[in-house]
Amino acid sequence: MIEAIDLKKSFAKPGAGKKEQPVMAVSNVSFKAADGQVTGLLGPNGAGKSTTLRMLATLIKPDEGTASIDGFDVANDVLAVRQQLGFMPHNAGIYPRLTARENIHYYAKLCGLSRQDAKQRVNALLDQLDMHGFADRRSAGFSQGQRTKVALARALVHRPQTLMLDEPTNGLDVMATRGLRDIIRELAKQGHCVLFSSHIMQEVSALCDHIAIISDGRIAIADSLEGIKQRTNEDDLEDAFVRAIGETP
């Protein structure tokens, strides 16, 4: 369960002096993502999706506003939030000199799992994500799909209730995308709260129960797919999206 209220975040321009106005990355973001559902954070490039997710993941502090993950405040209860949350950032960021198994195992150990427990958990994840074919190869030569699976397994290693995936289908081929979609649906069915960011309409409409459209650092509309279509008077999500962000389709 994710709840964000009026999140704001601005950054100083890289290399700019102190006098220059900072860039407003997120100006007004409020939305909810419920357990047992897949929630899509849909927005064009540069809309503030990654910044929002990073604030929720306690990686950066919001300038204003609050957010909570399963009831824990992201500003004050940092460790509890991280315990609840599995975060898969935009880039897989796995260690190329370690094998897939070692990558996952390393995170399991970092999360404080005992040796025995970590071993079991890694094996369970290798099963769940069907990774045995490449589990013991060094990840330097992995395909994008394999890398995403390793990163996803790592995000799941400490059994988080809430899962946030930043553009997970980027660079995946059709079959890999479908496979990933099944995994995400399965996780939601198990009762997890899954927040999923993307700029691809089909992706979101195929997968999400609930959609928050983000544009220029603010949430333009947040509802179910049907609700969004109704409220924008458009049949097509793409048109609805364009109208929601304030343009005419």
Partner: peptide, 14 residues
């Protein structure tokens, strides 16, 4: 550089 810092910092770790 390998962008592995972001997931690492998101772990329940001080």
């Amino acid at each position: 550089e390998r962008q592995s810092l972001e997931p690492l910092l998101g772990l329940p770790l001080k």
